[in-house]
Amino acid sequence: MPTATNDSDGSDGIQIDLISGERMNELATMEKIRMILDGVHDGNIVILEEGLTPDEESKLIETTMAEINPDGFNGIEIETYPKGESSNSSLLGRIMGNDESGAKLTVIGPANRIETLHKDETLISTLVSRS
């Protein structure tokens, strides 16, 4: 799966897992959830080209809860970027900021990590809506 790293904030690089809609469509619900949570457990930010169904979201919340533990994993943060209607333009186009349609990406990351990102004007919104 494609990854991108950002070292601009110092030594602590951030890995981003981009998962295409095509890739997601091949997977069963629990495989999708594993792919997301495995990435998050590794400290990565997972970006889904297409969102999850309500049922998958419900299973994602449940599985996340089962994996939270006080020694390390606090759970996840999910956001959709940017707010607005979705369309069918390409994932890369949206990531590279070539896309004006306001299509949505689902961004999932470790709860503690995303909070850090928010503080410095968020890498994600920079990536997703780079102009």
Binding site: I61, T64, M65, I68, N74, G75, I76, E77, I78, A111
Partner: peptide, 8 residues
């Protein structure tokens, strides 16, 4: 209450 994260 439902949430996606819990930090003790």
């Amino acid at each position: 209450g439902v949430t996606t994260k819990v930090d003790y």
